[in-house]
């Protein structure tokens, strides 16, 4: 279980996050939604120790993550940010191999290679295995990065807009695979999502943020109501039901 206590983040006088008290479950898919600038990515960075909070703490199973050793933490918690610019010339396989670094510390063993193989298979990356990532399309690259964090094989997986650059087919594919990982391997996957319908369709829980605060944390059925969504996004929205599932129309 990951918990945050009174988490605050300030840039100068601007308060990006205010008193965040949250609990992330140890299994299932959680989506974080909210308008631009709500502090979603910042929250993810703080929880994953990529950034230091101005005040407040983050705990993993009761222990403060700032006190835990970095290599140990890397085997329990993985994070993928929105922008991943890599200067070095790496093949997809090299990149996925880096995902196993917390285990092999630079010397991959056969078990690591097997894991790399299975993840590459899992995300249909076999044809691109030896291609350089700077020569891939945006969507292929995104899948390679997701493969890397999946290879890290952690209990908690934080993804910042994993569907960035992905077409419909691959978006659905990735979401199904993530759902599978959450259900079969009992992993906890926490995602920042922009597409509210994807979030509603696949999440077990939705956290809604606005102006640096958590305003709702509930199951998708409760969040997917016109009134709730209008509060979150400050725009007229309509939720309809299609084939027994809530669907939000926000295109016009």
């Amino acid at each position: 279980m990951i918990q945050t206590q009174q988490l605050c983040l300030k840039y100068g006088t601007i308060e990006v996050l205010k008193d965040i008290n949250l609990t992330f479950k140890s299994a299932g898919i959680t989506s974080i939604i909210g308008p631009n600038g709500a502090g979603k990515s910042s929250l993810l960075s703080l929880v994953c120790r990529l950034q230091q909070p101005t005040s407040g703490t983050v705990t993993l199973n009761g222990e403060q993550i700032s006190r835990l050793k970095s290599p140990d933490l890397a085997r329990q918690l993985a994070v993928l940010r929105q922008e991943n610019h890599i200067v070095a010339r790496l093949t997809v396989e090299d990149l996925v191999c880096f995902g196993r670094f917390p285990y092999h510390q630079g010397r991959p063993k056969t078990a690591d290679m097997a894991k790399i193989d299975s993840v590459i298979d899992f995300l249909d990356l076999q044809p691109f295995r030896l291609r350089y990532i700077n020569e891939l399309s945006g969507g292929q690259r995104q899948r390679a990065f997701i493969a890397m964090v999946l290879a890290q094989d952690t209990q908690y997986l934080f993804l910042d807009e994993p569907l960035n650059n992905l077409d419909m087919k691959h978006s659905v594919n990735i979401m199904k695979r993530l759902q599978q990982a959450a259900q079969v391997m009992h992993k906890s996957i926490i995602m920042v999502m922009h597409d509210i319908n994807f979030a509603a369709c696949y999440s077990d829980e939705i956290i809604a943020m606005k102006q640096g605060r958590i305003i709702y944390q509930d199951c998708p059925q409760m969040i997917m109501q016109s009134q709730m969504l209008e509060n979150i996004y400050d725009m007229p929205l309509k939720v309809i039901e299609l084939e027994g599932r809530p669907l939000c129309l926000y295109y016009r």
């Binding site: 990529l50 994070v79 991943n84 880096f98 670094f101 890290q152």
Partner: peptide, 21 residues
């Protein structure tokens, strides 16, 4: 520590994620 440098080259966020101090 040369292995750690390989990870460091991936950028700060990646390096921290992969357990580099």
């Amino acid at each position: 520590v040369h292995h750690q440098y390989d990870v460091l080259a991936l950028g700060e966020a990646m390096a921290i994620n992969l357990g580099i101090n």
